[in-house]
């Protein structure tokens, strides 16, 4: 790369100082930095910060339909939180969300890691085939994805029921309605969520695997380490930063899952029995302050669940 050499030798910096001086710590540069941050900070404060504060304040008030038409909101302290947290139904939603998150994030990371290792071990042709398959799933817009899966799981003409009934001989499944019953509803949701989340894990972990030096591996092999041992003792520690990010993101995404649940509910599931945190908050939309309190609970829950990872990441990362 040729550094464009302008013939202008007149120093842009005023004064007779040597041109080699590093002008990094000039006082204006600090202000320039703050100035450069203003647009981003402003936009985030406007689109996320303000609604967050507003929602937090709202969650301590009585704010429903009457207030929308001009009645001033009353302070009710922790009443909204008490009402929510003494409701066993809400605990059911929280428990289901945590379980859904654990199962989905666990499956996604486990399958994604296995496929990444597989991708690294197979020959070129098989690898490219696998990559294309993954990319097709990854690149599809979520709504299109959900649309196809509804068709695949269609009770009358869906190909999944056909597969179960004809080649696999489970005649009872021919007209099975997958969404009516909560357990099978969550099974469908899990299949969809895992299917669409795995490619991201595969590619990220695969990119991490490529960073593991081949010499280290060969040295370990010469020292008699088996494949399994090499994987857990060398590969996993070396790709730890990548794994951390992947697990963290997966947990966050699966805890706040909304679109998949919402669309499947619209496809004919009993909503009350299938709510997770996101859809439950959405269903509270009429009572703004309750929704605000519930959203705050969800936020706290997210932070609690991920606190461990965030701490580890901040410590590992030199910023």
């Amino acid at each position: 790369m040729s550094v464009s050499r302008t013939p202008v030798r007149t120093p842009a910096v005023p004064g007779p100082a040597a041109p080699a001086r590093r002008p990094r710590r000039r006082p204006w540069s600090r202000w320039a930095a703050y100035l450069l941050l203003v647009p981003a900070v402003g936009a985030i404060a406007l689109g996320l910060g303000y609604p967050l504060v507003r929602q937090f304040v709202l969650s301590f008030q009585e704010y429903g339909l009457a207030q929308q038409f001009g009645r001033p909101a009353e302070w009710v302290g922790l009443d909204n939180y008490v009402a929510l947290l003494t409701d066993p139904y809400v605990w059911g939603v929280i428990g289901r969300s945590l379980l859904f998150c654990a199962v989905n994030a666990g499956l996604t990371v486990a399958i994604g890691m296995s496929l990444a290792v597989l991708m690294a071990r197979v020959g070129r042709a098989a690898r490219i085939t696998l990559q294309v398959g993954m990319l097709l799933a990854w690149g599809t817009p979520v709504l299109a994805t959900l649309t196809v899966w509804q068709w695949l799981f269609d009770s009358q003409y869906g190909v999944i029921n056909w597969l179960l009934a004809e080649p696999l001989g489970m005649e009872g499944m021919r007209y099975h309605s997958w969404l009516i019953e909560p357990t099978s509803f969550y099974l469908v949701a899990t299949v969809i969520v895992v299917w669409m989340s795995v490619p991201f894990v595969v590619f990220t972990v695969y990119a991490g695997l490529l960073q593991v030096p081949a010499e280290t591996m060969e040295a370990a092999q010469l020292d008699g380490a088996g494949a399994w041992q090499r994987f857990w003792r060398i590969t996993v520690p070396m790709i730890k930063p990548v794994l951390f990010v992947v697990i963290l993101l997966q947990v966050i995404w699966d805890l706040r899952v909304f679109t998949q649940i919402y669309v499947l509910q619209r496809a004919g599931a009993p909503t009350r029995d299938t709510h997770l945190l996101g859809t439950y908050i959405y269903s509270l939309a009429e009572e703004f302050s309750m929704a605000g309190a519930m959203a705050t609970i969800m936020l706290v829950l997210t932070l609690v669940v991920t606190a461990f990872y965030i701490r580890r990441m901040l410590r590992a990362e030199e910023l």
Binding site: G47, L48, P51, L52, R54, Q55, L58, I252, L255, R256, V257, F258, L277, G278, I281, Y282, L284, A285, F288, A291, G292, M294, A295, T296, M298, L299, T302, L303, T306, I310
Partner: peptide
Amino acid sequence: MIPAEGLFISQYQ
């Protein structure tokens, strides 16, 4: 980490 899914009500408002 902020779950946008918990914010949409107040964003709407």
